[in-house]
Amino acid sequence: MITRTGVYPGTFDPITRGHMDIIRRGAKLVDRLVIGVTTNPSKSPMFTIEERLAMVKRETADIDGEILVVSFDSLLMDFAEREHAGLIIRGLRAVADFEYEYQMAGMNQQLNSRIETVFLMADVSLQPIASRLVKEIALYGGKIGKFVSPAVEADVSRRVYEIGRKGSA
């Protein structure tokens, strides 16, 4: 039996309700969904890779289907090839996302034409959510419960507290 494998890559710093929407819907498209938690040199993460892996594993534990959460630090297409993926799942929130993702899909297709990129539009109610904005809101004392699960909200609150303590020391 051939298993259809898809890869959903991201930094997930932190994982949001928008990410979860794409994961739930993406899991229905494949037999095996590999969530690739990566570093991004252009971003400074709030959480370590180990913390983000644990967070994503916890948040996806109740989703039906075969879901694997792993870290990677390589070209996405090399990672997808290693995982025997036939497609890459990307979430889109807005036109600005599309322009960037379209360019990336084109470059990835040049690197490996055997792997397709599939775009999923985030649910309308979740489109404005971005991890970067969630962190910014939390750092300024705003409420983030609309954007993340209660467990992630607690993780972020703990980290903001730790950051505050280091800053005042």
Results as ranks from 00 to 15, higher is better:
residue 26 G to H: 05
residue 67 I to W: 01
residue 61 A to K: 13
residue 53 L to S: 12
residue 76 L to C: 06
residue 44 S to V: 15
residue 65 G to A: 04
residue 28 K to M: 11
residue 63 I to A: 02
residue 34 V to M: 00
residue 33 L to R: 06
residue 30 V to L: 00
residue 51 E to D: 11
residue 60 T to Y: 00
residue 26 G to I: 01
residue 29 L to V: 12
residue 36 G to F: 07
residue 24 R to V: 13
residue 68 L to S: 13
residue 41 P to S: 12
residue 54 A to P: 05
residue 64 D to R: 15
residue 62 D to P: 02
residue 71 S to T: 10
residue 56 V to N: 06
residue 42 S to H: 11
residue 72 F to T: 14
residue 30 V to R: 00
residue 72 F to W: 08
residue 51 E to V: 10
residue 33 L to C: 09
residue 67 I to F: 00
residue 70 V to H: 10
residue 51 E to H: 08
residue 42 S to G: 09
residue 75 L to S: 08
residue 35 I to M: 02
residue 59 E to N: 12
residue 28 K to P: 03
residue 65 G to C: 02
residue 40 N to R: 09
residue 71 S to C: 05
residue 48 T to K: 05
residue 62 D to N: 13
residue 47 F to K: 04
residue 49 I to N: 02
residue 48 T to L: 01
residue 69 V to A: 01
residue 60 T to V: 14
residue 55 M to S: 12
residue 65 G to V: 05
residue 40 N to G: 11
residue 43 K to E: 07
residue 23 I to T: 09
residue 68 L to D: 10
residue 53 L to P: 12
residue 58 R to T: 13
residue 72 F to E: 12
residue 69 V to P: 01
residue 26 G to V: 03
residue 36 G to N: 05
residue 29 L to T: 12
residue 50 E to W: 07
residue 32 R to W: 06
residue 61 A to H: 10
residue 55 M to C: 10
residue 50 E to L: 02
residue 52 R to V: 04
residue 45 P to F: 00
residue 48 T to N: 04
residue 49 I to F: 00
residue 65 G to S: 04
residue 48 T to M: 01
residue 24 R to Y: 08
residue 69 V to T: 05
residue 59 E to Q: 14
residue 41 P to H: 09
residue 67 I to H: 07
residue 26 G to L: 00
residue 58 R to S: 15
residue 73 D to A: 12
residue 31 D to C: 02
residue 74 S to H: 11
residue 32 R to Y: 10
residue 51 E to G: 04
residue 52 R to Y: 06
residue 74 S to G: 14
residue 76 L to K: 06
residue 25 R to L: 01
residue 26 G to E: 07
residue 37 V to F: 04
residue 45 P to W: 00
residue 58 R to G: 09
residue 50 E to P: 04
residue 52 R to A: 02
residue 36 G to C: 07
residue 56 V to S: 04
residue 29 L to H: 12
residue 40 N to Y: 10
residue 24 R to T: 14
residue 37 V to K: 03
residue 39 T to N: 15
residue 40 N to Q: 13
residue 29 L to C: 11
residue 75 L to Y: 09
residue 46 M to Y: 11
residue 26 G to M: 01
residue 24 R to L: 09
residue 27 A to E: 03
residue 23 I to L: 03
residue 63 I to E: 05
residue 31 D to N: 13
residue 43 K to F: 03
residue 31 D to P: 04
residue 59 E to C: 07
residue 66 E to H: 14
residue 34 V to F: 00
residue 30 V to K: 01
residue 74 S to F: 08
residue 30 V to C: 03
residue 39 T to L: 15
residue 54 A to W: 06
residue 74 S to Q: 14
residue 69 V to K: 00
